[in-house]
Design a protein around this nucleic acid. Sequence first.
DNA 1: ACGGCCTCCTGACGGC
DNA 2: TGCCGTCAGGAGGCCG
Length: 274
Amino acid sequence: MPELPEVETTRRGIEPACLNQTITNVMIRNRALRWPVEEGLEQTLQGVTFNTIDRQAKYLLLKSETGTLIIHLGMTGSLRVLETPPPPEKHDHFDLQFSNGITLRYRDPRRFGALLWTTDPIEQHPLIVHLGIEPVGITTTVEIASHLYNKSRGRKTTIKSFIMDQKIITGVGNIYACESLFLSGIHPKRSAGRISKTRYQKLATAIQNRLNESIQQGGTTLQDFRNSEGKPGYFQQSLTVYNRESKPCKNCDTPIKRFTQSQRSTWYCPQCQR
DNA sequence: ACGGCCTCCTGACGGC
DNA sequence: TGCCGTCAGGAGGCCG
């Protein structure tokens, strides 16, 4: 679900509510997330104050002096900021309550998300240490293009799988992979190792622009995604190929095609993407 | 090291 | 109305 824009939208939404606030209560109703939520986390988090609310890749990193709380939204996770929380529903798996009275509530029907606490330096955490380049923020498209080009030499995997590999570049999921390949005119089945530096520059620009545009619109909501206020994003109306099988290409009117690529749907324009 | 496949889980939807 | 198959925004883990 949530790809980088949706995670960043969530980060921006929760930051004003929990930055420099102290945890006063933790309620975990279902520990069976991607990995079991560790026993005793409720006690560990008591009195913890988060002084930075960060995002790296699709991970939210709530940092304190004693450790970092890692939250991943998986496919269907969302965090909401609640002033007066209503009774929890079926998929509301945990609540964090802060000294300012707000409750941060995590909902995740499919339970592919994660809640982890680490006292290690966060950059050394096993889930973080191997992550690739960040596509938004201070990273330039020239840096991204060089990185993609250098990492792809000798690689036989398809370009779509390559840019969805979080060890190469972070934050790009199925939607933004399809979208940025369309915008840069690259066929999703093309071998990553056989793409020129010029084309990688186009792709890097497309990835960064597309992600930033989506962040501006509050992300993409297909079904579940909600921001921290419980509201959907609006980027889905700007999608060019994703979920548009048989509909006319926005450039050339050729019907958009769909096929399955490493267990995921890929949409593309057979005319515009080579 | 790499690439392909399977898996976790719930819910929505379409066809019969 | 219900049942069944398919698909959905992620990504670790396994196998060859």
